[in-house]
Design a protein around this nucleic acid. Structure first.
Lengths: 153, 153
DNA sequence: ATGCAATAATTGCATAAGCAACTAATAAAA
DNA sequence: TTTTATTAGTTGCTTATGCAATTATTGCAT
């Protein structure tokens, strides 16, 4: 059985994995004037057009500020536009522009490439198990973060 | 078989997991005047005292600049000190101070806590498999990053 | 020995992300 | 209806990280 050396930790490996993914995605998306941070927003908008920045933040499990900045960049780059929601004038409805819609096949290709590379030597069972474990671990730790936050109040 | 919705991706889950870990670690370490970014450096120094910033960067798979800044913070916070390597006056040898050495049990406890939380509903087999897969995925993608970089030259 | 390449560290620049404080709009309560 | 609380968004501040350029030292080649 492989023993875990004391100075090693899963956190370190996840950090490395995450940074490598950013690196890869950043390079793939550079030609299109966006970076890895905007990618998940654009992907989500492809399938849920017209949602608010708040909803985007919730779905992507990030801060509203992060969402606001990502959408601002995407707007500036010409991929989305915003319309004040007539039913709730505090909120924007974020829509893809033509240019944004046309990115679909590129985004899917980049996403697939990354997946294929990440999991290139994984069996089908491993792929499913891996994804499942990442989600479970994420839920476990973020639940704990949430709990801590609530006790502060 | 669970189908992957098009706008979802492993990258997104890993991003969420990573950010949740940072959040958790940051809060755990705050009382000691350091944050999650310095943690792996301190951990590594517990077991490889006297190594250079370059070596730290290589071991932790990060940029030298990141290593330099982490060590600068740890030095400022009183956990490490640096001595110019007499055998190679370009490099520092980084050592833990008394205060740094005394952090061992705390760091190990924090590390264990995080592991226990992350993997709380994992079987022993899953724990091993998860770690193994994270490392493999990290190797797969970073190898690709490396390759791309080389072709640019 | 002199000049050139590689190594170790530092710093500036850019990007990202979260928290907190703030504004504006809406909903709920008085 | 006025007051209060909540919601959506924005902005400033802080921290982290990588890349590129720069300096200093060392090693290698001529």
């Amino acid at each position: 059985m492989e023993k875990l050396r004391k100075h090693e930790s899963i956190g370190r490996d996840i950090s490395h994995l995450f940074r490598s993914i950013r690196n890869f995605m950043g390079r793939q998306l550079e030609p299109y004037g966006i970076s890895d941070a905007q990618f998940p927003f654009l992907m989500l908008l492809l399938y849920e057009d017209g949602i608010s920045q708040e909803k985007l933040a919730t779905s992507l499990k990030c801060d509203r500020a992060t969402s606001a900045r990502a959408i601002a960049k995407l707007e500036y780059a010409g991929y989305v536009y915003r319309v004040i929601d007539p039913d709730n004038r505090r909120a924007y409805k974020v829509f893809l522009t033509e240019q944004g819609i046309e990115m679909e096949h590129i985004l899917l290709a980049v996403s697939k490439d990354m997946n294929d590379i990440l999991l290139e030597d994984f069996t089908e069972e491993e792929k499913l198990a891996f994804r499942n474990m990442i989600q479970r671990a994420g839920t476990n730790i973020s639940k704990r973060n949430q709990t801590r936050k609530n006790t502060d109040e």
